[in-house]
Computed example of a mutant assay.
Amino acid sequence: MRHAEIGKLDKSQARHVWDVAEYCRRTGINKAEERRLIRVLGRFASSHELQMNIVRPQTRIR
């Protein structure tokens, strides 16, 4: 691993990384789905990874 100086980092490429349990709590995802996401992604993931892996039940429109 290399040392990086914080002042020289490009902030445009930085990503916000969520704690999966906190993200699920904030968005109202149930515990079973939270456990599945932790198993698939680990304890931390980007918001894009979380959104692409959440399985939501279909709502019946009729």
Score class of each variant (00 low, 15 high):
28 G>T: 07
13 Q>T: 11
3 H>T: 04
54 I>F: 03
13 Q>A: 05
53 N>R: 15
52 M>R: 15
5 E>W: 14
2 R>N: 14
21 A>F: 02
4 A>N: 04
1 M>H: 14
5 E>T: 10
44 F>D: 00
47 S>R: 14
18 W>T: 00
58 Q>W: 05
4 A>S: 06
46 S>G: 13
26 R>A: 15
61 I>N: 02
26 R>V: 05
24 C>N: 05
50 L>F: 03
28 G>A: 11
37 L>G: 07
49 E>K: 09
16 H>D: 08
4 A>T: 08
58 Q>S: 09
21 A>S: 13
34 E>I: 00
56 R>V: 07
33 E>H: 06
43 R>H: 14
22 E>P: 00
6 I>M: 11
21 A>G: 04
19 D>A: 10
56 R>M: 08
27 T>E: 15
10 D>S: 11
59 T>P: 00
30 N>Y: 10
4 A>I: 09
42 G>K: 05
33 E>Y: 05
57 P>W: 03
28 G>K: 04
19 D>G: 01
14 A>F: 12
54 I>D: 06
57 P>G: 08
41 L>K: 02
17 V>K: 09
36 R>P: 00
12 S>W: 06
29 I>P: 01
44 F>P: 00
58 Q>P: 02
30 N>Q: 11
12 S>P: 00
9 L>I: 04
31 K>F: 09
50 L>H: 01
15 R>V: 13
52 M>W: 12
43 R>K: 14
46 S>I: 01
61 I>R: 01
62 R>D: 14
15 R>D: 13
20 V>L: 03
58 Q>I: 06
3 H>R: 04
10 D>N: 15
28 G>Y: 12
22 E>Q: 13
41 L>C: 04
52 M>D: 13
5 E>C: 10
23 Y>L: 02
28 G>P: 03
51 Q>S: 14
43 R>A: 13
40 V>E: 15
12 S>K: 11
